[in-house]
C-alpha cells in the first residue's frame, strides 16, 4: 500500500501551488481557481487521513463533501463579485482595484 506521507506530500504541493497562485496571479478569475486548488489540497488531506486513520467512521469523507460544496458556493459568490466589478471597470485585473488604499 502507498504510504500516507505520499498523499500528504501531493496535497502539500497542491496547497503551495494554490497559495502561490493567490499571491502571484493578477487576474481575479485565476485567483479564484487558485483558491479552489487550496481547497482541493485539503480534500486530498482529509480523504487520506480518513482512509489511513479512521476508515470505519464517515467524518472525513463527510467533511470532504462539505468542503467541495462550500467551495462551489464560494466560487458562485466570487464570480458574481468579479462580474459586478467587470461591469464597472471592464477589467478583472487585481492590480487595478486600487481605489481603496492607505
Amino acid at each position: 500500500m502507498i504510504p500516507l506521507s505520499w498523499y500528504l506530500i501531493v496535497a502539500a504541493a497542491l496547497f503551495c501551488i494554490g497559495m502561490y497562485g493567490i499571491l502571484a496571479r493578477r487576474n481575479a478569475v485565476a485567483m479564484l481557481m487558485a483558491v479552489e486548488l487550496t481547497l482541493n489540497a485539503v480534500n486530498i488531506n482529509l480523504i487520506a487521513f480518513w482512509r489511513y486513520t479512521d476508515p470505519s467512521s464517515s467524518a472525513g469523507v463527510a467533511w470532504a463533501i462539505f468542503v467541495f460544496t462550500v467551495a462551489a458556493a464560494e466560487a458562485a459568490v466570487g464570480l458574481a463579485l468579479i462580474i459586478s466589478i467587470y461591469r464597472q471597470r471592464e477589467s478583472v485585473i487585481a492590480e487595478e482595484l486600487d481605489i481603496l488604499k492607505y
Partner: peptide, 24 residues
Amino acid sequence: PEAGMKYFVYGAFASGVMLYGLSF
C-alpha cells in the same frame, strides 16, 4: 464591489489556510 472582491479573495485564502490546519 472592490471591497467585496478584496474581502472575498483574502477571506477565501484565509479559510483555505485554516482548513488545511484543521485537516492536520
